[in-house]
Each structure stands twice: as structure tokens, then as C-alpha cells.
Design a protein around this nucleic acid. Structure first.
Length: 289
DNA sequence: CACGCGTGGTT
DNA sequence: TAACCAAGCGT
């Protein structure tokens, strides 16, 4: 049994959100930028940044010409700023080695920094209309429920997940079908309170037939934030995003009480290339001094 | 393969 | 209100 492709595609056509990276005039570069920004960051926070980003850097080569610091500042508070650095590297590679054209081949996309199993296929499908399985957390949850009758997806396994979704793809409009699966997971078949009453494929749903059993797999580790290096790194970076001129270490020291953790985080930011130290010993976003 | 990596809105 | 959640990737 599989999910009725015609029904799902019709539902998507009628009710999908009108997101700018889904419009026909959006370039492959626009799609790629959106996919990177949407890695772990909600649509609502991505949209305004994506718009200004594409206006400022409409081509990979235009972004490639910017400094790392400019890119990090433009990334703002989307989170996980290493994504911005990798996107910058990807833009340079596309400009230099691919004639400023986002590659359409999955393996070529996979070779670019910051592009993994999901993003490579999302670009292949949504920018170039290819029939490839696009598996994100939404799709994994929809498949776990509708196909396997489980309450939620178990631990990810790229090989198995791709195989599962490959088997569902219709002969026609596989790209729209993939977008529809993602939209279903994002809007209807949600993690916490699924809106089964609104589901277009409830007739096909194995979870529904099984009486909607609770998730039975291994417990998922809840990610802490308060007090972690991630929080401290974020605080340090926020200082540097807010100033154009390099700052003395004392300006960074005030953001966190624990000097050991502070210094360790500053070191890791330097190692990651998110922060640079000037000849005078001051600190700044990289590439601007 | 499990873990670390930002940030802010929702329940 | 603390916990959960959000279109992953690289190591």
C-alpha cells in the first residue's frame, strides 16, 4: 500500500504555502540558498533573510565576492552559522568550477560543502524537476506513520530512508509529490499534535488503521542548550556581528562568567573560522581586516 | 553512528 | 515554564 499520489499532489496544489523559493521564477541558486537556510531553522525566520540575501547576491559569484564577515552578518541570527561559511565555500566552488550554475547532478551537489543527502536531492528535485527521493525529518515521520503504522520515525538511516521513499515515488511529477510529502509533514502530520482530520490521505494511513499507537522506538535524546558551548559561542558571535571594528578580548569576556568555557569556545570559533584575530590581538568576524 | 552545532517560538 | 520543536551536516 502506498500514498495516493494524485490525491496528495492535488492537495498540495490547492493548499501549499506560497513560499518564494517555490515560485517558478526562483532560480536554482535561490532554491539552494533556501535549503541551506532551512536546515534546522523554521520557515518564518528564514523567509525575510532569504529575500534580502537573494536581492544582495542574486548569483553564486556575487556571494562568492563577499567577505566571510559580510556573509556571517547577513546570516544574522538564523543559527548554526557554520552553514553560512559552507554556503560561501559552495558559492565560490560553483562560481569557479561550474560556470556560476548550480549543478543538477546529485553526486556533484554532494561534493559541495554543506550539501548532504537531503539538500542534494532537494535541489535536484525542486530546482531541476528530477525524480529523486527527498527525505527530511517531515518525510521520515509521514512514512513512519502512513506506511509503517508507527507513531514516529526511528533513528535515521540514509540508505533505508532513501529506499523507503524511492518506493513511493510516482512515475509522473515525483518532484511535486516530494514537496507534497514534506508539506504534509510540516502542516498536517506534525510531530506533536497531528491534524489527522485535515489529512488528504487518511484513507491510506497505516498508523490510522492501527489505532494510532504511540511511538515505540528508542527514546530520542533531548538537546540541551542553556549552559552549553553552543550558547556561549552564540553569545560571543553576537558581539562580533554587532560591531564593524575588531574588539578587545575584554569585550568578549563580559558575555559569560566561566572563563575556562569562554576561552575554550573562543578557541573553537577561531578553529572553525567563524572568528579571526587581528595582528593587534583584537577579535573580529573573518575576512574583513 | 552519536554527537555537537544557534536561535527563538510554541506548548 | 521547562521542554519540545524546526526543510541537516560533518566528524
Amino acid at each position: 500500500m502506498s500514498l495516493d499520489a494524485d490525491v496528495l499532489i492535488d492537495w498540495f496544489t490547492d493548499t501549499a504555502r506560497d513560499l518564494p523559493w517555490r515560485r517558478s521564477e526562483c532560480t536554482a541558486w535561490g532554491v539552494l540558498v533556501s535549503e541551506i537556510m532551512l536546515q534546522q531553522t523554521p520557515v518564518a525566520r528564514v523567509e525575510p533573510v532569504w529575500r534580502s540575501w537573494l536581492e544582495r547576491w542574486p548569483l553564486p559569484s556575487s556571494m562568492a565576492a563577499a567577505s566571510q564577515g559580510e556573509v556571517l552578518r547577513a546570516w544574522g541570527k538564523l543559527g548554526y552559522p557554520r552553514r553560512a561559511l559552507r554556503l560561501h565555500e559552495a558559492a565560490k566552488a560553483i562560481a569557479d568550477k561550474h560556470d556560476d550554475v548550480v549543478p543538477e547532478d546529485v553526486d556533484t551537489l554532494l561534493a559541495l560543502p554543506g550539501i548532504g543527502a537531503y539538500t542534494a536531492r532537494a535541489v535536484a528535485a525542486f530546482a531541476y524537476g528530477q525524480s529523486v527521493p527527498v527525505v527530511d525529518t517531515n518525510v521520515r515521520r509521514v512514512v513512519a506513520r502512513a506506511v509503517h503504522g508507527a507513531g514516529d520515525a526511528g533513528p535515521p538511516s540514509t540508505t533505508k530512508d532513501l529506499r523507503d521513499v524511492e518506493a513511493l515515488l510516482p512515475d509522473e511529477k515525483a518532484d511535486v509529490y516530494s514537496a507534497a510529502l514534506m508539506e504534509l509533514g510540516a502542516l498536517v502530520c506534525t510531530a506533536r499534535t497531528p491534524k489527522c482530520a485535515d489529512c488528504p490521505v487518511i484513507e491510506d494511513c497505516a498508523w490510522q488503521r492501527a489505532g494510532r499507537p504511540a511511538y515505540a522506538g528508542p527514546a530520542k535524546a533531548v538537546q540541551k542548550f542553556a549552559g552549553t558551548d553552543r550558547q556561549v559561542r552564540g553569545l560571543l558571535l553576537d558581539v562580533l556581528r554587532g560591531t564593524v571594528e575588531p574588539v578587545a578580548k575584554a569585550r568578549l569576556d563580559v558575555v559569560w562568567h566561566d572563563a575556562g568555557q569562554r576561552d575554550r569556545c573562543l578557541d573553537s570559533l577561531l578553529v572553525d573560522g567563524l572568528v579571526e584575530q587581528t595582528a593587534g590581538g583584537l577579535f573580529a568576524l573573518p575576512g574583513e581586516h
